[in-house]
Amino acid sequence: MITALAFYLFAGLTILAGALTILARNPVHSVLWLIMAFFNAAGLMVLLGAEFIAMLLVIVYVGAVAVLFLFVVMMLNIDFAELRAGFVRNFPLGIAVALVLLAEIVIGLGAVGQGGIVLGTADGSAAVPADMSNIKAIGMLLYGKYLFLFEAAGILLLVALVGAVVLTHRKRAGVRPQSVPRQNARRPQDATVNVKPEVGKGVSL
């Protein structure tokens, strides 16, 4: 009973927030609705018993990705009316894409109804036992069976990271960067002179 209520609550709010993401006039409001959609999706995952994925969704998407979205959207001066100008013209295209996606979902659900593909048994071995906590289960799969693919994904991310640094890094001449060790090594006597000048005499520096 409570599960069903929670499901309809989360699912309804996800759809509502998703719709408002594209309907909101202000881009910042759009991003905030998107965050709401992420959050409710995380709620749905908790209902499925995938609490690890749910927490990751909140930490990664809500906690990091959406913050960066928000950053960019707040900084840029986006005029949404201008972006919306082509809305009516592109409407048939949008409908076509939506229909393709809907068809895919329907076909997918139909296929599962006929007995879906059992995941996690690529080499014929049994799936992870159900009584294991799902962090452990995911860990066993990622660091056991799919170690190579997992590491490959990691290397791919590393390449993307290095690429981003290479693309944005500029060497500029004439910059005097701060050297923290040098600053820390500096003592008061290097920078100041303690003198006691006699009356009427100046100080030579």
């Binding site: 910042v28 905030l32 965050i35 609490e51 690890f52 927490m55 990751l56 909140v58 930490i59 809500v62 906690g63 990091a64 913050v67 928000l70 707040m74 906590s133 799902n134 962090i135």
Partner: peptide, 24 residues
């Protein structure tokens, strides 16, 4: 819950929104 510590991390990452939204 099994993911107690992750929950704390997730919640603490939400904390930033109060500040950003206030500022904006």
């Amino acid at each position: 819950i099994n993911v107690g510590l992750l929950y704390v991390l997730a919640i603490s990452s939400l904390g930033v929104y109060g500040t950003i939204i206030a500022g904006w």
